[in-house]
Design a protein around this nucleic acid. Structure first.
Length: 479
RNA sequence: GGCGGCAUCGUCUAGCCUGGUCUAGGACACAGCCCUCUCAAGGCUGCGACACGGGUUCAAAUCCCGUUGCCGCUACCA
């Protein structure tokens, strides 16, 4: 065991919302750091001045926090670290590892297209490397903007040992001299990434495997800088149900959407952890501590996974059922307010918590809560047409309901046990099946065929409201 | 096209390194049954996979080679 202090990082670029695949990458970085008592660092990769926007950094950070992925350091912004990249570039200039390139992006794109048509190599042809010193000086004097390219070897192999994929090897001649400093003065991705990973002492680079072909380029930069590269772990991709990269068409892709739909952070974390990682016994449900203790990069799979919303839904319901009514009520506050079940800023009453407790096993999402408990909380209810037809517009219902009223009135305690006993006796006396009474009563007092057990329902509503609703039902719906 | 990665139930996966205990285990979904005043929850049962083709071996999901398929990269984007 080395005593090396583990440091991981999540490095999103602020060019849009927080993608769910990115969130999983962040989670794995976080878990790996926690598991090894290391540090998790947040770095914002905003070197693309045209696509980056400050307005995206906030939702990214809020999303991470919501999921419980708090970072130990940062956020560092690459756009504010220009001096560091310039310094590294200076080193490479001094050691002769880089050269100026005066080709414009347009020229490059055109040449690339031509080469592609011809079916040839699309990489940079190294023409600026062949510029004579005089030519170079002239071009520079003319004020033409230029970029810096790194010299890459044209024979041999670039290999590295990936913690997940094993040994990965690239023929060097497939990697052409690439730009490390753009003509606007900003570092290109691979350069900024290398300089930062090294200056931030990142020990393990854990990222999506769409970066695997960037890795040899980065290794080349590390080598040129004479720095030992970190360890790499390339995570398999997360795909949509169509097997392609996750896209809007195949479901929600932004973390915010899951939050808005009523998923619990703990459930999403659990689900995402299992999308690519597993324990030997295939354990499905984890507490936060278990996740941090059991997570292990060596047990991350190699193949891409499909994001399965059905399983997430099940897991969310599972976590909801395991939550206390009081915690649930607090988590559900935004939805309760939106539904008018509580006023903005009000305390959540014990009555609401009790209602949540009664219906807890039926929620899949937090957003399901209001529509399930409203019949218990609101003053007036809507009668479902189908429920009315099925249970109230039947022969004998009037007799039964009218007959039960005095029984209800007589009930002093109005507890579920007492009520049940009274109801069963009533059925016995009348010689009718329990269903003949229970079903109409449920619909009469709740307007629905579904909900808590009738006696829990009656007890919760209380005598006055029960009687009142039965009267309404009798008057409006029963024939 | 070139380069790279990947391949076990519909989906997430265990097993593969260290061949036999695998008539391939778990979970979601689906179907049925049980429980039951409804809806759920829960329990039980069922359906369902080693991509294909060659080797190696007494024995292969596991090792080797090839084929196919899928995905990614191939930018002065990250």
């Amino acid at each position: 065991m080395s005593t090396e202090k583990i440091r991981t990082r999540f490095a999103p670029s602020p060019t849009g919302y927080l993608h769910i695949g990115g969130v999983r990458t962040a989670l794995y970085n976080y878990l790996f750091a926690k598991k090894n008592k290391g540090k998790f660092i947040l770095r914002i990769e905003d070197t693309d001045l045209t696509r980056s926007d400050e307005k995206f950094t906030r939702p990214i950070m809020e999303g991470l926090k919501w999921l419980g992925l708090d970072w130990d350091e940062g956020p560092y912004y690459q756009s504010k670290r220009k001096d560091i990249y310039d310094f590294a570039l200076k080193e490479l200039i001094d050691s002769g590892e880089v050269y100026r390139c005066f080709c414009t992006p347009e020229e490059l794109a055109q040449r690339r297209e031509e080469n592609r048509q011809k079916g040839g190599d699309t990489g940079y042809d190294g023409r600026c490397l062949r510029l004579t010193e005089d030519e170079q000086a002239d071009l520079e004097k003319s004020g033409l903007p230029y970029a810096w390219r790194i010299k890459t070897p044209d024979s041999g192999f670039i290999k590295f040992e990936d913690l997940i994929k094993g040994e990965v090897s690239f023929p060097a001649d497939t990697i052409h001299d690439f730009v490390i400093l753009k003509s606007d003065g900003m570092p290109a991705y691979n350069f900024a990434c290398v300089v930062d990973d090294s200056s931030m002492d990142i020990t393990h680079v854990i990222r999506g495997d769409d970066h695997i072909s960037n890795t040899p380029k980065q290794i080349l930069i590390f080598d040129a800088l004479k720095i030992k590269p970190p360890r790499f772990a390339h995570l398999p991709q997360v795909h949509g149900i169509d097997g392609k990269r996750l896209s809007k068409r195949t479901g929600a892709v932004s973390l915010a959407e899951y939050q808005e739909k009523g998923y619990l952070p703990a459930a999403l974390r659990n689900y995402l952890a299992l999308l690519g990682w597993s324990t030997e016994d295939s354990q499905q449900l984890f507490t936060e501590d278990e996740l941090e203790n059991k997570f292990d990069l060596s047990r991350v799979g190699k193949s891409a996974g499909v994001f399965d919303i059905e399983k997430l839904n099940w897991m969310n319901g599972k976590f909801i059922r395991d939550s206390s009514a009081s915690d649930l009520a607090n988590e559900a506050r935004p939805w309760l307010e939106a539904a008018g079940i509580i006023e903005k800023g009000d305390d959540i009453s014990d009555r609401i918590k009790k209602a949540i407790e009664l219906e807890k096993e039926k929620f899949m999402l937090l957003s399901d809560i209001p529509s399930k408990i409203d019949i218990l909380i609101k003053d007036s209810i809507l009668y479902d047409t189908k429920a009315v037809t099925k249970r109230l517009k039947k022969e004998g219902v009037r007799d039964v309901l009218e007959g039960i009223i005095p029984i209800l009135q007589k009930e002093q305690e109005f507890t579920k046990d007492g009520l049940e006993k009274a109801f069963r006796v009533f059925c016995e006396d009348k010689g009718i099946g329990a269903g003949k009474l229970f079903h109409p009563v449920r619909v009469a007092v709740s307007g629905r065929t579904t909900g808590p057990g009738v006696f829990e329902l009656l007890e919760f509503l209380g005598k006055d409201r029960v009687l009142e609703r039965i009267e309404v039902a009798l008057k409006e719906y029963v024939e």
